[in-house]
């Protein structure tokens, strides 16, 4: 938007919303919404506490392990589906089902099988992140130009060589896009997993704050999570831009 001929960046509108939040909070219009300034002060208060650091560490660990597994499994499966007609036909219907299924319903199964610990959270993260990574890796592999594939074959590349030296790199823009989307879903997954399990990490904190009606605490925690999610999304968006020339050259 332009005001007096000067461009104001889009993100500046968030400041407007923050001010609005403060006003609504100060006027005490909705009991759910305390003033933003109180929330920020509470944030400064709880972030250095040990319970918070522990919860953050556990969340980060489950997130990293879960996305790691999802990437290591999802990219090869996606590339395989992009290259092999048979694998594609066998797997695609299932991937399509799970990419848009209410995965929250599956978390109780993981809990029944693996208990109420970190493993369950990690597997929830995998469950949320995996499918979109597969789909994007598949789409990227399908868009590789045929001549590049034939080049690899004509120089006698083995399956592993063709995968690791040609396909992954040629499909990199889509693969990274899929990983970014997968990570956004993984963040949702790690929170949902903890909410359902509710005895570990942030899920435990949520449980405490909620049962004691600590609104400012709850919002402070939400603010941290939103900021982290946004940060991860932004960093990956930036990396994606940097490899866009791969796509441009094909």
């Amino acid at each position: 938007m332009e005001v007096f001929g000067r461009k104001i960046p889009m993100s500046a509108s968030l400041i407007v919303w923050a001010v609005l939040w403060e006003i609504v909070g100060q006027l005490d219009l909705v009991s759910l919404i305390p003033p933003l300034s109180n929330v920020v002060m509470r944030l400064a208060e709880i972030v250095p506490t040990e319970t918070f650091i522990d919860a953050l560490a556990l969340t980060a660990r489950s997130f990293a392990a879960g996305t790691g597994i999802a990437i290591l499994a999802g990219v090869p499966i996606g590339v395989l589906m992009g290259r092999s007609e048979i694998a594609d036909r066998l797997l695609l219907p299932w991937v399509n089902v799970f990419v848009s299924a209410p995965l929250t319903a599956l978390v109780p199964i993981i809990m029944a099988l693996f208990g109420f610990g970190e493993t369950t959270i990690i597997l929830t993260v995998v469950l949320f992140a995996l499918w979109i990574i597969i789909l994007d890796a598949r789409a990227g592999t399908r868009s590789i130009s045929n001549s590049l594939v034939e080049m690899a074959q004509s120089y006698g590349a083995s399956y592993w060589q063709a995968f690791s030296k040609v396909y992954v790199w040629a499909a990199l823009p889509e693969i990274l896009a899929g990983i970014r989307l997968g990570m956004v879903r993984a963040i949702k997954g790690v929170i949902i997993g903890q909410l359902i399990v509710s005895v570990v990490g942030f899920g435990y904190l949520f449980e405490i704050y909620q049962s004691n009606f600590l609104m400012e605490h709850l919002w402070a925690l939400l603010l941290v999570l939103f900021a982290l999610a946004f940060l991860i999304d932004g960093v990956f968006g930036y990396m994606e831009k940097r490899v866009e020339y791969y796509a441009a050259s094909r």
């Binding site: 938007m1 104001i8 993100s11 509108s13 949702k188 909620q210 939103f226 999610a229 999304d233």
Partner: peptide, 29 residues
């Protein structure tokens, strides 16, 4: 463009954020 300036950033934040975390709040209220 004006509506874009006001609205889009909020929804971008919302899409990236784990909104499920709001559910306990809503239930509470």
């Amino acid at each position: 463009r004006r509506a874009e300036w006001v609205g889009v950033p909020v929804f971008i934040v919302m899409q990236a954020a784990p909104l499920a975390a709001l559910i306990p709040l809503l239930v509470l209220a």
